[in-house]
């Protein structure tokens, strides 16, 4: 089982999402999660990279154990963020779960080609949305071995 479970340290999750409704639902779903977690939220791609690189007001940002990444965001979209993360020697180890309303096969294909760790489509139904976010959290926090911090 994941070493994180044993240490009782909250798992750091970064959500990159520009839709306030989706942010709120994700926050709600994660609040009830089995594994204690701490959620940070950024609303566009530039902020996401600033957070990950600890630039500007993100100087003290935690390194996320897991990134939930929306595809369609202002300023810099999720595809570009994903490509940048996975091309970065230090950041590429962080699992990126694409969480998008897009069911477009090309979006899915491209995300995997850019080495997204997995692609999950957001259900439009409230209960299903919450259930999917919980499943994502539970799988990555309790079943998967996340990369150790170096």
């Amino acid at each position: 089982m994941s070493p994180l479970v044993d240490t009782h340290k909250p798992i750091e999750i970064l959500l990159a999402e520009d839709n306030p409704g989706d942010v709120r639902l994700t926050r709600e779903a994660l609040k009830d999660a089995k594994i204690s977690n701490h959620l940070s939220v950024v609303a566009d791609g530039l902020e996401t990279l600033a957070f990950l690189h600890r630039e500007g007001r993100y100087a003290n940002a935690p390194r996320p154990h897991l990134i939930l990444l929306d595809l369609n965001m202002p300023r810099m979209d999720g595809r570009q963020v994903l490509a940048t993360i996975k091309a970065d020697e230090d950041l590429r180890r962080i699992p990126v779960v694409v969480l998008s309303t897009s069911q477009d096969r090309q979006d899915i294909q491209k995300a995997y080609a850019l080495q997204a760790n997995c692609y999950v489509t957001k259900p439009t139904n409230y209960d299903q949305f919450v259930s999917v976010v919980k499943s994502v959290e539970e799988f990555w926090a309790t079943i998967v071995e996340l990369p150790p911090e170096t």
Binding site: M1, N117, I143, V144, E145, P147
Partner: peptide, 22 residues
Amino acid sequence: SQAEEDILRAYNLSVNCYVTKP
């Protein structure tokens, strides 16, 4: 294998996820 080195290396090689067998 629960070796940190194996886990780290797998993620560096873009594995989708790493699970240890109980």
